[in-house]
């Protein structure tokens, strides 16, 4: 589904602050995988997502999505088949537009944005029904500006909007990190439901070890631009948070802190 081949990425290239993050990094996401990616700050998790989506370019290497070489394609070309939810709930929605307008925008992804009416009132009930499944009361706020919703409501909407049209892969970039424990629990449950119902391939970066263990069928731990742990299927089911924490600490010891 997604393949990163021999990716190299340096930051602050040519300065004293030059840091090499990826040196011939390889990663493969298989179709139907729900991967949780964990790792300390600076381990390259988010950079990996950004390289996949084309938000930042790699210095060298190839990005292959769905069998096509997308290395030199801009981000918006890649999003044709990819949905993405960000850590910041404000990034996935338009705050100055209301819920209905946001849903209509997302619903039109992949189609022409022509001169026909932006919202289709006939679809109002359909959107209401979809929002109703979130259980956050959004179905009664169709004409409320998204900017005045809570972070949790906004994130739930981002999630729904990103999967509204047929996509092949869902990228979740610490999408529960900015939410309170209860709301992140709700968002995680909705995420899991959507991914399972639609048979999506998902790549989720998280700092929550419990979510990483509980959800998904594959777990990857990254450290200094490398995958130092990659468990799938049965192997992954046997993991627990304690074991993960232990590994985390071991890394830190190696680092000398």
């Amino acid at each position: 589904m997604i393949q990163l081949c021999d990716i190299c990425k340096k930051f602050n290239s040519g300065t004293v602050n030059e840091t090499v993050l990826f040196n011939n990094f390889n990663f493969k996401v298989n179709k139907g995988d729900f991967i949780s990616v964990i790792g300390s700050n600076g381990s390259g998790k988010t950079t990996m997502l950004n390289i996949i989506c084309g938000t930042i370019g790699a210095d060298s290497g190839k990005v292959i999505i769905g069998g096509h070489d997308m290395t030199h394609k801009p981000d918006y070309e890649r999003y044709k088949k990819i949905g993405r939810v960000y850590q910041n709930p404000a990034l996935g929605t338009c705050g100055d537009m209301n819920v209905l307008e946001n849903m209509s925008l997302a619903d039109n992804k992949g189609k022409r944005f022509g001169f026909s009416s932006g919202v289709n009132k006939k679809k109002l009930d359909y959107y209401r029904e979809m929002l109703g499944t979130l259980g956050l009361g959004l179905e009664d706020k169709m004409f409320v500006k998204v900017g005045s919703l809570s972070g949790g409501q906004r994130q739930a909407m981002s999630l729904l909007m990103s999967v509204m049209t047929p996509i092949e892969c869902l990228i979740l970039d610490e999408h529960t990190a900015a939410l309170d424990p209860k709301t992140s629990e709700i968002i995680m449950r909705i995420t899991d439901k959507i991914v399972k119902e639609r048979g999506l391939t998902a790549l989720m970066v998280t700092h929550n070890l419990r979510y990483a263990v509980e959800y998904g069928n594959r777990l990857v731990m990254m450290h200094e631009g490398k995958c130092i742990m990659d468990h799938a299927g049965k192997e992954k089911e046997n993991l627990d948070t304690q074991a993960l924490l232990k590994t985390f600490e071991d890394i830190s010891v190696e680092l000398g802190n």
Binding site: D75, Y76, E77, Y79, K80, G83, R84, Y86, A90, L91, G92, T93, C94, G95, L105, A106, N108, K109, G110, S162
Partner: peptide
């Protein structure tokens, strides 16, 4: 929010 436009492909 230009990010939304990009994710709308």
């Amino acid at each position: 929010n230009p990010t939304v436009v990009a994710t709308l492909a």
